[in-house]
Structures are given as structure tokens and as C-alpha cells.
Simulated scan of single mutants.
Amino acid sequence: MYQIKNEFLSIAVNPVGAELSSIKNLETGIEHLWQGNPKIWASQAPNLFPVIGVLKNGEYTFEDRTYKMPKHGFVRYNENIQLISETKNELVFELQFSEESLQQYPFKFIYQIAFKLNGKSLEVSHKVSNLDKKPMYFSIGGHPAFNAPISLNEDYEDYYLEFDRKMDLRTYLLNDEGLVSKKTKGILDNENKIWLKKDLFEDDALIFKNIPSTKVALKSKISGSVLSVEYPDFKNLGIWAKPGAPYVCIEPWLGIADVEGTDQNLKNKEGIEQLEPGKIYQADYVINID
């Protein structure tokens, strides 16, 4: 594990997948990141690139060729990511294209993810560089899981997510293959709070497309404000946990899983980003510990 800390926070990052594995409040001693119980969900904060969620039949087409791609892309579990910079307050990791990556993703790229401590905040910065001679198509996102509850005298149902504004929100339901259907379910009606319940995720993740909000806080009716996530660079938001598990994932997304009616052409994929040759794309989100 790679670790950095300041007077308020310490973080640890697993070199495999450059996956965040700890966010500890040094003032309270509280560990805010889910610790990855393999009996429930072994991951903690996977990095999603170059797709989010599942592809139909686990594959897509680009320029008349078919490519296989695992759920959430190939950064997750990737052992080829390198630490390229380490300072007192920041860790920067990088993955470059390879002959292996070109077999499942036909673009020459550099993917970087940086973790920077700034007071009681952790800035997570994604940078994608297109080294190719053709436009590059990709999605990018985060998947951090936060402990809830954080103290023994609380229950999961004491917690709620509070957005920075009141909204009408509908989640898009997934079908049995994990594809986004046209079916929706109302979650908020001119409200800004989603209470955590053990059955909240029985239909899988809550998927909010083009969400008007840019910030959501995790709060407890007993212990008050716990943390918040700011995601102004991200159009979509996922909220998820294994039903009954003591955590909640707050997932800023640029992109989305394949929709049911997909033609599987990467250029036409809903939510896909296009990056011109020689250009760099950056998207950041911030975790604030209260």
C-alpha cells in the first residue's frame, strides 16, 4: 500500500488498480472507507475506465471489429499501473496502452489518477490523454464505498444522503443482464434526501442520468454530517450497496452501462466521451470529511 497523510487525514492506495483502500480521520480515528469484506463485497473503490457497468454480451464493436471488455473496464484489478509521482500530499498513478490493452481497446492512451490531500478533503483527479491518430471513445468514473454506520450505537437506517438541492429524481432500472432499461422508478419528488434502507438496492444500483446536483452528503440523524462528495465534472451518479451491507457507494460517472437497445457500436454508446487526437481530458471529484 502507498500512504500519505496530513494533520487531518491519512489515505492508503492499493497499487493494484490504483484502488483507494483507506480514508482515516486522524482526529476521530474513524475509518470512512469500506474495508472490503470478501464475504459481502471484496472491493473498496474501483476505478472505472474505459467503460462503466456491463457491455451487452461483454463486448462492443469499433470499426467493424468486435472486442471483449469486462464490467467496469480494465483498470480495476490491473497490476500494470505504475506510481509515477509521490509527494507529501499527493500520489499519482499511470497506466499506458500496451499490446495487451490494444487487444480489447484499440486506442493508444495514457490514463492517470491522482489522490491529493487538501486539509480535510481528498481530491481524486482523472486525466486521459489520447496518443492516437483517431478520436478516442471512453467512459470514466469512481466507485468509492463509505462505511455506514460509523459508530456502534447507530444503525444503517439512521443514515441518509442529502443533495445540495431539491430535485425530482428517477432511477433507471437494470434488467437481468445488467443493462439499463427504459423502466424508471421515482426516488425523489422535489426532495433532497434519500434515507438508507436495507432494501433500497434490491433492484441494484440507483442510476441518475444528467443529475442537476453536484454535491451529496452522507449524514446520520444521530452523529450528524459524516462526509460529502462533490462531482461537478460528472454528468451521472450511481448509488449502490450490496443489500443489507454496512456501506454505501457514491459513484460519479461520465458514462453508463449499455442500454437494452444498444447497437454495441462504441461510437454510439450512450454517455460515451469523445477525445480528439493529442488532447487531454480531465475530470475530478472531491471527498470532504466532516
Rank of each mutant, 00 (worst) to 15 (best):
G271S: 02
I239M: 11
S43P: 06
A205Q: 12
L122K: 08
I23G: 08
P15M: 09
L83G: 11
E162W: 04
N192V: 05
T28V: 03
N130R: 14
Y159R: 11
Q103L: 09
G36E: 01
A45S: 13
I11P: 05
L161G: 07
N147I: 03
A145L: 10
I222E: 07
S22I: 03
N80A: 06
I84M: 01
I187C: 09
V124R: 11
T171F: 08
L179W: 04
E270I: 05
Q82G: 03
E123P: 01
K71M: 07
K242L: 08
A145T: 10
L117T: 07
D155F: 04
V16A: 06
R170F: 11
P277Q: 04
K5L: 05
T262L: 04
L152Q: 12
I84V: 14
N47F: 02
K183N: 13
E260L: 15
E202N: 14
I30Y: 00
I23F: 04
K88G: 10
Q96T: 14
I52S: 03
G244F: 02
N37R: 15
E59G: 07
I84D: 02
K24V: 09
G119E: 13
F234E: 01
F74S: 05
E270A: 12
Y285Q: 09
Y281L: 10
Q274M: 14
K269D: 05
S151V: 01
M136N: 06
A145M: 11
G186T: 13
D263E: 00
K68N: 10
N80K: 11
D290I: 06
A217F: 10
I239P: 07
E100G: 10
K116Y: 07
S181L: 06
K198T: 10
P144F: 03
Q82R: 14
P212W: 07
P46F: 00
D258I: 06
Y159A: 10
S223R: 03
S85E: 14
E276Q: 10
L237P: 01
A205N: 12
P232L: 00
G261R: 00
Y105K: 14
A18G: 13
H143W: 05
G244N: 03
G53D: 02
I287W: 05
E251C: 02
E31T: 07
K209C: 05
Y105Q: 12
V54L: 01
G178V: 08
I150S: 08
Q103M: 10
T87D: 00
N25A: 02
A12K: 12
I113Y: 02
K166I: 07
K279R: 12
E154R: 05
H32E: 12
N288R: 14
T184M: 02
K221Y: 07
L55E: 02
D204L: 01
K133F: 11
A241C: 11
P232C: 00
V286D: 05
L48K: 00
